[in-house]
Design a protein around this nucleic acid. Structure first.
Lengths: 220, 220
DNA sequence: TGTACATCAGTGAACGCGCGTTCACTGATGTAC
DNA sequence: TGTACATCAGTGAACGCGCGTTCACTGATGTAC
């Protein structure tokens, strides 16, 4: 056949990882077979075991790659948001809006979170992978907690909340929003949940009654 | 051996379902084998196929049972909360607190949500199961949306939120909280997220600044 | 009360397929001298 | 510049195990007459 896959040599490993990530998010890790990955990547089974010593290694590499990518994305997003805004609160609010917009513009349909996927199959993974998962969630907590502390120095919280919990809530709202999106087959459910979280953060620091002057600043 | 499993006859099907639910929440449906279920239930493989025509039927029955049980539990919980409270807002807030308490007192460790689990493996299920999943989420939305409408008649919302989204957010916060609990191995993460959601609902209808008189009523 | 039949809740043995893994091997490219 | 060797990115064939599923059969209990 001349219509064979292109087989750009050298990037087979990367193709394996790409197909694997998509498959894992749709079916779970256990249901994703090496067979289907090599078929999609255009190599043989032995080729797979050249790149990964076993399926466990695939699981670990997949998660490390995912966490790194996601962290980079969030760094970039909130750095950009802060550049547009001196104030840490307004930077956060702008960042959350940008996050919601990004999520609703995702090209390839419904997103998924590898961390949540692994959580719902965690008996299938070794301690190293589970630790990786926990550390990723804690890193998100630290990231947002630090920001909430900075915000609270300027805007004392008007609603009594624990900042670790409020920081975790963003991870939770995203993961929960993904489940809503998937279950309802409505890709907008996720960005709408992020915008609701944003309203909550706003209310915590600015209060519920909308102040027109502050409003104008924030919406800039 | 005399230390054999009790084999209370007649309830093998129920035992299969119980073991299956626990296993699915820990490993996912695909990774849960018929073999391990019958070993736990103390019957042979043919016995399994007497009760379920195939593994697909197990998936469906498991989900139907889960949804029904969970709906019953929520009906009961919020009915009780309303009996303690005339006001629909305060009934909701009390119900949410009771929910958080129930979740932190769960006897057998970390909970899980079968709907979320199925979402992260949805390519493995047929349309009927996926529809069941979507309908369950919509039922939760309707349930809480109706309550939010009743509340808003008495307490006009002070924060502009879409009530469908706010209703969905409870499902989302629970599912996201479960992921947090599982990833962090901290069973309190989930109830704390529910309490945060409760703060948000309170702020939406009562405002951010705490009114001491209202406070006294609510905390009753 | 006795007998025939039906239903319930399984048993036991066998099946074929797909899975993850191993092992010896290979052709192309890179590096040392 | 030529040759020897090493490394990279795989191939091909075989493996054994566990999985879901089928099929003919069975002993205990329930029901009709």
């Amino acid at each position: 056949m001349l219509t064979e896959a292109p087989k750009r040599k050298g990037d087979a490993r990367e193709r394996l990882l790409q197909f694997a990530e998509a498959a894992v998010l749709e079916k779970g890790f256990v249901a994703t077979s090496i067979e289907e990955l090599i078929a999609a990547a255009g190599i043989t089974k032995s080729g797979f075991f050249y790149h990964f010593k076993d399926k466990t290694e695939l699981a670990r590499v997949l998660l490390e790659r995912y966490i790194e990518r996601e962290n980079g994305l969030f760094d970039q997003l909130f750095t950009r948001a802060d550049e547009l805004n001196e104030d840490p609160l307004h930077g956060f609010l702008v960042g959350l809006k940008m996050l919601a917009e990004m999520l609703s513009d995702l090209p390839n349909g419904h997103p998924g979170c590898l961390i949540a996927s692994y959580c719902y199959q965690d008996r299938m993974f070794d301690q190293q992978v589970r630790d990786l998962n926990a550390e990723a969630v804690l890193a998100w907590r630290r990231r947002f907690r630090e920001r909430l502390d900075r915000i609270a120095k300027i805007y004392p919280a008007r609603i009594p909340v624990d900042f670790d919990d409020l920081a975790d809530m963003l991870s939770g709202v995203v993961d929960g929003g993904i489940v809503l999106s998937k279950a309802l087959k409505d890709k907008d459910a996720l960005p709408r949940q992020v915008m609701l979280y944003r309203e909550f953060v706003r209310a915590v620091f600015l209060g519920a009654e909308r102040d027109q002057k502050r409003e104008a600043e924030t919406e800039a």
